[in-house]
Amino acid sequence: MELGLGVGIIAAMAFHPARDAGLRLLPAGGLFAANTTRIALRRGHYLRDYAIRFVTCCAPSLTAEQVREAVFPKTVGE
C-alpha cells in the first residue's frame, strides 16, 4: 500500500513490477554484507514434505532426494 511517504527496504524477490507500479526498485546489494542462513536437520528423524520443500526453496541447488539422503544416509551394503 503506497502512502507517498518514506523509503522501504525489502528483498528484491518481494518486489512485483505489476503490483508495485507506483514504486521503484533500486539495487542496494553493495550497501549490505552477505547474510548466511543455516538450517539444521536431525539425522535419522522423519522430515515432512513441507520441511523438505522449505529446505529446497532455501537451497535451490539441492534436490528433495539429496535432502532425504542427508537425513537418512544409506548404510554400506544397501
Rank of each mutant, 00 (worst) to 15 (best):
M1A: 13
M1F: 10
E2T: 13
L3K: 09
G4F: 14
L5E: 14
G6D: 15
G6E: 15
V7K: 14
G8Q: 14
I9G: 01
A11I: 01
A12R: 12
A12D: 15
M13K: 13
A14D: 15
F15Q: 06
A18N: 11
D20R: 07
D20T: 10
G22S: 12
L25Q: 14
A28G: 04
G29Q: 04
G29H: 03
G30I: 03
L31S: 04
A33M: 08
N35M: 08
T36N: 08
T36C: 06
T37D: 05
R38K: 09
R38L: 12
R38V: 13
A40L: 11
A40M: 03
G44K: 07
G44V: 10
H45I: 03
Y46S: 04
L47T: 04
A51F: 02
I52L: 04
I52C: 00
I52S: 00
F54G: 01
C57T: 14
P60I: 07
P60E: 10
S61M: 02
S61C: 03
T63N: 03
E65A: 13
Q66I: 00
V67P: 06
E69S: 09
V71F: 10
F72G: 01
P73E: 03
K74F: 04
K74P: 01
K74T: 07
K74Y: 01
T75H: 09
G77Q: 06
G77T: 04
E78M: 09
E78K: 01
